[in-house]
Amino acid sequence: MDRRQFIALASSLAAAYNFKLPYRAVAEEVKLSGSGAAGTGFPDLVAVMGGTPVEMLDRALAAAGGLERFVKTGQKVLVKPNIGWDKTPEEGANTTPALVKHLIELCFKAGAKEVNVFDNTCNNWQACYSNSQIEKAVKDAGGTMLMAHEEGYYTELALPRGVALKKVMIHKAWLESDVIINLPILKHHGGARMTAAMKNLMGVVWDRRFYHRTDLHQCIADFTTIEKKPTLNIIDAYNVMMRNGPRGTSIADIATKKMLLLSTDMVAIDTAAARILEAKPEEIAYIAKAAAHNSGIADLEKLKIERITI
């Protein structure tokens, strides 16, 4: 075997194994309301009500100026749904798979080179991926599921502005993506009171116990000081778990709210989500703490909200 043959063999083996070299991501922060040359006139927060999750996503994105504002040709996209539990879609513990599928299809339409999806699950990861039906949705849409169940998939990152959380083991895919779309499902949460946009980002971190042991609300808020923030946050509030969350004990815990929120502001979108959950945003400590970090605006009065009813 000569050198050429060896290189050909080695690279084909690597290709067969989906081997990937580290990727240097180019992240660009886009403000939903728009700024500079892109012009303004877009809202800070889009809220849609009354349609199927897929319809509502289309309407929300149309109001936000289209996904093309956020996803550019040739970019690597990370979609982070909530896949935390070994539950079926009807049980409302994980993001609606149809929504995940539709969003990935739209990403590819906007020119994305690849779309990756993962979650550091609470239950056995394979059971979560498959029973949530998100794995199938991702595959059907042409996206890629990543593994996140071993520490080896994570890398350490400093959070200089963090108060309790000063460094974090974060999934490598976060750093190697150009665009990150945070796609949680809205649920009641026994510990954090509510899980929506900010709480969903605990699923890209390796050591959750550190959050719980140290100061849950402060750590959730500290994570939002990360330099590379989610490009876009979309909250699935079609079926909302109103109690016994985040896992739920039966479908009696679910209320059909038929809503969807979209914003680039994690704090604003969580404040609105708390209202849908019939909770008081001021009692969810991490919202105020994140606002104090200047990660977003908690006062909905100050925001331009576009409300769409289907």
Binding site: C122, H189, G190, G191, A192, R193, R208, R209, H212, R213, T214, D215, L216, H217, N244, G245, P246, R247, T249, A285
Partner: peptide
């Protein structure tokens, strides 16, 4: 004196 709730979060039967 901090919120945690990890146990209740994971409990399948509450």
């Amino acid at each position: 004196g901090n919120d945690c709730g990890a146990c209740a979060e994971h409990c399948p039967t509450q």
